[in-house]
Design a protein around this nucleic acid. Structure first.
Lengths: 221, 221
DNA sequence: ATCTGGTTTAACTAACCGGTTAGATATGGC
DNA sequence: GCCATATCTAACCGGTTAGTTAAACCAGAT
């Protein structure tokens, strides 16, 4: 046990291929025979090493989110101020999502199906990430830098935007192909682009302002 | 033809049920027999009235997005300033998503699968919504109210956040059940909550500021 | 050499599922 | 009444799919 987890380990190959297939076809659309074949493994071996389709799917989810969270933890270690920490979270999630192209689709599909088949282990990971963000927001508010916002919605806005932005490239391509002209700049957005756009947006959006000499109309109603 | 499109119209019943089933199970997970049974229609009648699974799915997508877009158009007619128009878009999309619980899952699933099976008709609708938002952003910038932002990413941030926020309730429930205590306020978010949260966030985030006495470090590079 | 336990394979199966068909029934025009 | 057309049904079909099985293979221990 504790063997080298290289490509020669059939379990590693199976999980890698399964992540791809589940990401692009969903749980119901994924074919066990397909996964086995692409992982160059006999189907019965897949059942022997991993278990049934549900177990395979759960293992894929866990591996995918663990890898992303590990990146965030590592990057967060260096950051200090609330602003900086939030920026780090945004850019790390964007980078992780771009680097592992299965991440965003898997999350989107789970979101669409209400997270019914997310194992508890994975839910706890999600909760931990939420707590991290909520702490940052509370810190920033305590330091007088952020205004008071709903941490639940703020967290989901952040993750939702980044994931949708990352997964949105193919749809942007379709939109451009159907209606757009030759606008090359319509489709491609690097992880850095996404991170810069969204962290600017949210840091400006969260900033606490001085009451400002009332130039606006009164908030009617 | 052009008959009353009531519940007695089998095509209406089929599309309604199919929207539910596709939203909660995805295209691959949806069962034609299931849809037919729940629509109280013989399976062959489903093929007779609508066509095969793909055609049914395309019809569902078109109907779903058309209904949402119609709401937006209607609501937008009254709005004037760029800020107001953006706020209307956010709150109308949030309201439409909450009212039709199939909308968000359908969009999320399409996003996850790269929009391969979105019919061109629907893509053109999406493009039109993008153009509307892009115009608002350009207007606001011209009026000196908004800063210069990437309209493509801004549009996807808006839609992504609202859709994820709306579809996120079941996952919030799972997170609360697994780790959270009795925090009732963790799960429920009305369309108005979502709209208020996000339009505040984005309007603040987009606002153009006066250059402000340089207190920050210079933007290196 | 042989036994033991983990690993691998080809073949199988039982259920499922999208789509079809042949024929029945209803409807409206004449 | 009668024909043409639209609507509807039960039964069927062939391919697919998750999961199983029984037997083979192979490495190390004795």
């Amino acid at each position: 046990m504790a063997r080298a987890r290289t490509d020669s380990d059939p379990r590693v190959r199976i999980l890698d291929v399964a992540a791809q297939v589940f990401a692009s076809s969903g749980f119901a659309g994924a074919r066990i025979d397909d996964i086995a074949e692409r992982a160059r493994v006999n189907k019965a071996m897949l059942y022997y090493h991993v278990g049934d389709k549900q177990a395979l799917y759960a293992a894929v989810l866990l591996q995918t989110i663990d890898h992303a969270l590990a990146r965030i933890d590592a990057a967060l270690a260096a950051a200090r101020s609330a602003e900086e920490r939030l920026r780090v979270i945004v850019s790390t999630v964007a980078a992780a999502a771009q680097e592992n192209p299965n991440f965003a689709p898997l999350m989107l599909r789970e979101l669409a199906s209400g997270g019914q088949s997310i194992p508890d282990q994975v839910v706890r990971r999600m909760a931990r990430l939420f707590r991290t963000v909520a702490e940052i927001l509370a810190d920033g508010e305590r330091a007088g830098r952020f205004r008071n916002v709903d941490p639940v919605m703020t967290h989901m806005s952040i993750m939702g935007s980044i994931i949708v932005l990352t997964a949105g490239a193919p749809i942007r391509r379709r939109i451009r192909d159907v209606v757009g002209g030759p606008r090359a700049s319509f489709v491609d957005r690097s992880a850095a682009d996404i991170a810069a756009h969204f962290s600017d947006l949210i840091l400006e959006g969260l900033q606490k302002r001085v009451p400002a000499p009332a130039r606006r109309r009164t908030r009617t109603k």
